[in-house]
Every structure is written in C-alpha cells, then in structure tokens.
C-alpha cells in the first residue's frame, strides 16, 4: 500500500484525521508533539481571554434540506468558539469559487451567511475571494475563522470530564449527515430529514450561567458523530464512559435511513447539537434548562463517566447487551460539512 497518499478518510474527523494531525501537521506547524486538541485555541491578550478557531466548508451539495454551505460556515465556526465557553464576536469569510459558478447562488449563500451571523450575534468583519478555473474546485468552498472572548473564569475543555459526570446531548442525533446524504444525487430517498444546522452560543451561555463550574466539558459532535466525540473526550480526560443506547434521541427519519443504509447514527454528523458533561448533582436541573431552550427540546442524558481509566467507551445496547464504542474508522460520509 502506498502510504504517501492522502485519502478521503484523512478528512473524516475519525482515527485517520487524528493520525494526520498528530504525526504530521501538529508537530510540523507548531513544533509541539501534542497541542491541546480542542475546538478552538485559547489565547491570552493583555488580560483578556480569547478563543480563536478556523474551519473550512466543502459540503456537497451546497444546498440541502435545512440549510446550505453559508449558514453551515457561520454556525460551524460559532459553535467551535461556543464549545470553549467563549462568546463569539467576529468572523472572517474566505471563499474559493469555481469559474462559472452562479452569481445568484452566491447571493443566496451570502444571504444565508448574513442571516446566520445576525441570528448568532456575530459580525463578519473581513474576507477574501478567489476564483479558480473550472474543474479546480467544486462550485464553492468557504473558510471562516472566528474570534470570541471568554468573559467568565470558568475552564471548559475536553480534559475536564470527571467520574460521575452525566452526559447531556441537546437533541436528536444524526440529522445533518443524513439530510446531506439524502440530498445527494443518486440516493433517492424521501426521508423528510432536515439538517439541524444552528448556532449554539445562546444555549451555551444559558448553560454556563446556570451551571457555572458544574459544566465540565462542552463539545459539538460534528464529523464522526457522537461516538467519535465521546471517545475523544474519554481519551483527553483519561476516563471511562458508558452510554445508554435506549436514551439516544433519534427522529424516525434518521432511524429509517440509517437502517436502510446500514449506518450507525452514533457516527453521523450533527451541526446544531452539543454534548455537555455536567456534575451529577446538577444534571437533571441542567437537562431541564436545555430542554426549555428552543434548540434543546429533545435533549436527553445519554450516559455517564464511570471511572478514571484509559478512555474506554462502552454502550449499554437498547436490548441490554454491552459493547465497545470506538472512533469513526475511515470515511463514512465524505463532504458533509
């Protein structure tokens, strides 16, 4: 086998992505063997705590049920900042456009970005446009970077999961990945599934205001889905986790498409959901708070941190059996964000 090739799986958010980061990119770019593997970098600037992140969007098709690449590019970056407990403030927007792309479609995408930015309370303050010859890009790629400020003294990151923590998911899982997949040419399925693409900074602000330091970890389970995200946190925090399959919120549409295609919704991407690891004594109260938020109606507690460990994740299956949970292996659904 030829190890020189970058494969689609290297962009899946799963194991291969992690290997590429750890073995090649992080050591080369930062000189550190292991950087903090969080959604955004935390920076100290004259006493202010800033969060800084960047993300590129290559979703295909550009328009899908529930959203398009424009709102996705805003919400994805807003959410990465929010997951560090930051208040997102400013975004950049860089577009790589393929020659021959429709001006009207570009306007639709730009409008979607503007609407999403207004909804999230952020401003798009700088940008860049490049046009490449036909065939050198696929329609439109967008990169957004974001800056947020951390206005509280709380530490929220992936290393802080503790034994006893309950894991809250803010709603149904798998909607985004399945919606994009169903919209894709060649998959003639009328599933009625819509992307959950949404900004989570408001929900995070409510959670932190109520929960304070009983909120230990926040992360949005995007590529690789809930399974990969939970496994990442288990490894980062050095704890073992047990999930309860019966309590995973799923729409009938996602369940149906997953059954037909043999996909596991636990590995399908979300773009408007968060996982919160919270102290057990406040879990029920914080769950109720999330459920009272418009983006958290179907929130549920889906598992708990059982003990200090080596990052093992297990699942109590819907029928009462027990099995392991690993990160996404290879590519499940390429180009879903």
């Amino acid at each position: 086998m030829d190890n020189d090739l970058i494969l689609l799986g290297h962009g899946s958010g799963g194991n291969l992505s992690h290997q590429l980061l750890e073995e090649l990119l992080i050591p080369t770019l930062s000189g550190l063997e292991m950087a903090d593997r969080n959604d955004a970098a935390l920076l100290d600037l004259a006493g202010e705590r800033l969060a800084f992140t960047t993300d590129s969007y290559v979703v295909e098709p550009l328009f899908f049920p529930g959203g398009c690449i424009g709102d996705l590019a805003v919400n994805g970056t807003v959410n990465d900042l929010a997951m560090m407990g930051a208040t997102p403030l400013w975004l950049s927007c860089a577009m790589i456009i393929e020659e021959g792309f429709s001006r009207q479609k570009l306007a639709e995408v730009a409008t979607a970005m503007r609407v999403a930015a207004d909804l999230a309370g952020v401003k798009i303050v700088t940008g860049d446009t490049k046009v490449v010859p036909r065939g050198k890009a696929d329609g439109l790629f967008i990169n957004t970077s974001g800056i947020g400020v951390i206005r509280h003294g709380l530490q929220i990151d992936g290393t802080r999961a503790r034994p006893g923590d309950r894991i809250i998911v803010s709603g149904t899982i798998g909607d985004h990945g399945i919606a994009v997949m169903a919209a894709r040419e060649g998959l003639e399925l009328e599933s009625g599934v819509k992307s959950d693409c949404a900004p989570l900074n408001g929900l995070v602000a409510d959670l932190l205001a109520a929960g304070g330091n009983t909120v230990h970890v926040l992360r949005d389970p995007t590529r690789g889905g809930v399974a990969t995200t939970v496994k990442e946190i288990a490894l980062q925090s050095g704890v073992d986790i047990t999930l309860d399959e019966a309590s995973l919120p799923l729409t009938a549409g996602v369940k149906g498409v997953c059954s037909i295609l043999g996909l596991d919704p636990l590995y399908v991407a979300n773009e408007g959901k968060l996982l919160a690891f919270v102290a057990p004594e406040r879990a029920d109260e914080l769950l109720a708070l999330v459920q009272s938020h418009p983006l958290g109606k179907n929130a549920a507690i889906i598992g708990e941190v059982t003990e200090i460990g080596k990052g093992k994740v297990r699942m109590r299956t819907s029928v009462g059996g027990l099995r392991g949970v690993e990160m996404l292996a290879g590519e499940q659904l390429p180009r879903i964000c």
């Binding site: 596991d264 029928v319 099995r323």
Partner: peptide
C-alpha cells in the same frame, strides 16, 4: 450480534 452485544446476554 456485535452491535447489540448479544454475546453478553
């Protein structure tokens, strides 16, 4: 059998 952990039952 694996996905539902049936062997453990």
């Amino acid at each position: 059998i694996y996905q539902y952990g049936l062997r453990t039952l």
